[in-house]
């Protein structure tokens, strides 16, 4: 019977050429995966930063009166301020509570800081009698 299939395999040259083509085409493709990793990281940071801001916002809203031990009053700018320093794995924050001169409304400004840069912010208001 005649042999229908050639079982000689591939030559060394074919393997070298194949590896070369893979090197040229697939390695740039691997940048995709690196890019994916970076975007995932940015997304995670975004989420953690807004969670941090929300944590401080809810902490203020839960207070009956402004806690003067945590928030120091600056008589020059008429604002209550708090600075949370950045720690290992945690964001820092700059928090301002600005009382409205004409009413009981207090405006809240929260800036989330990462290595000296503002990465997220949240503004709101609260009523303190």
């Amino acid at each position: 019977m005649r042999k229908l299939i050639n079982r000689k395999g591939v030559t060394l040259m074919e393997i070298i050429v194949t590896l070369g083509i893979i090197g040229i085409i697939v390695i740039p493709l691997l940048n995709f995966f690196v890019l994916c990793g970076r975007i995932l990281n940015i997304g995670r940071n975004e989420y953690e930063a807004v969670q941090t801001a929300q944590h401080y916002m809810e902490e203020i809203k839960a207070m009956d009166v402004i806690d003067s031990e945590i928030y120091s009053y600056d008589p020059e700018s008429y604002t209550y301020e708090r600075i949370v320093l950045q720690r290992q794995g945690k964001y820092g924050a700059e928090i301002k509570i600005v009382p409205d001169i004409h009413s009981v409304l207090h405006r809240i400004e929260i800036k989330v800081i990462d290595e000296g840069e503002i990465v997220n912010s949240l503004t709101g208001s609260v009523i303190f009698e």
Partner: peptide, 21 residues
């Protein structure tokens, strides 16, 4: 497909931030 999933994931996180704001 992975890049697409990651972009969707990022958009969700971004949308979450904007929703809270």
């Amino acid at each position: 497909s992975l890049l697409n999933i990651v972009f969707i994931n990022y958009n969700i996180k971004k949308f979450n931030t904007e929703t809270k704001q």
